[in-house]
């Protein structure tokens, strides 16, 4: 039993964490009107096996993409002008053997027969974030930057998996912020 406990501790503390790969290949933005800035993220996403298994076993996985509009204040750092996020849920529907991607804000559902298809749909959903910014309020001369990232929503995981997520940083998608200038 002692060996089992030791193994458990080692597993908990020392085992390498399996992290989700989600890379923002490219990002751009487009003003839909004077108050809406559409940010488009082009993502390459993949899931670790453990999360794929979890998904297949009925675990619902939520993702969140965040977008932030900042301007630089010299040595004082940056200040966020506006931020927005989008939450998308990915789950497996056993009755139809499909993966379901749900935009949690718009309650729109996409159905995919494979994980790969589901991830593509997921990337599309996550990659469209609308930032409500008054374009006229942006002061000329300031250096505005857009920052974006995608991460797994730990809090939406079942509690037992949150142990792993918290203790070992498993399934972490804490990618760095992807930045580009607001043209």
């Amino acid at each position: 039993m002692r060996g089992w406990i030791f193994g458990l501790l080692v597993l908990l503390l020392l085992a390498p964490s399996a992290t989700m790969a989600a890379e923002i290949r490219h990002a751009d933005h487009i003003w839909q009107d004077e108050n809406r800035l559409l940010v488009r993220l082009y993502l390459d996403m993949s899931l670790p096996d453990v999360l794929t298994d979890a998904l297949a076993s009925g675990v619902v996985v939520n993702f969140r993409s965040e977008v932030r509009l900042d301007y630089a204040r010299g040595f004082l750092g940056e200040r966020t002008v506006k931020s927005a996020s989008k939450a998308v849920r990915l789950e497996y529907y056993a009755l139809s053997r499909h993966y379901v991607v749900t935009d949690l804000e718009r309650q729109q559902m996409d159905f995919a027969p494979t994980v790969g298809d589901a991830l593509e749909m997921l990337a599309r959903r996550l990659g469209r974030v609308v930032l409500e910014v008054d374009r006229g309020a942006l002061r000329p001369g300031l250096d505005y930057t857009l920052a974006s990232r995608v991460q797994l929503d730990h809090t939406a995981l079942p509690l037992p998996l949150q142990w792993d997520a918290r203790l070992r940083g498993a399934y972490g998608t804490q990618l760095g912020w992807y930045r580009w200038s607001l043209e």
Partner: peptide, 28 residues
Amino acid sequence: LAVRVEDAFVDYREFAYLRGPIKQGFIF
């Protein structure tokens, strides 16, 4: 009926999948 069956099945599968982490959490 189908949704209830599917919910029960998913819950059971999820629970079965989380068996290890549940034990680990309790033991921790």
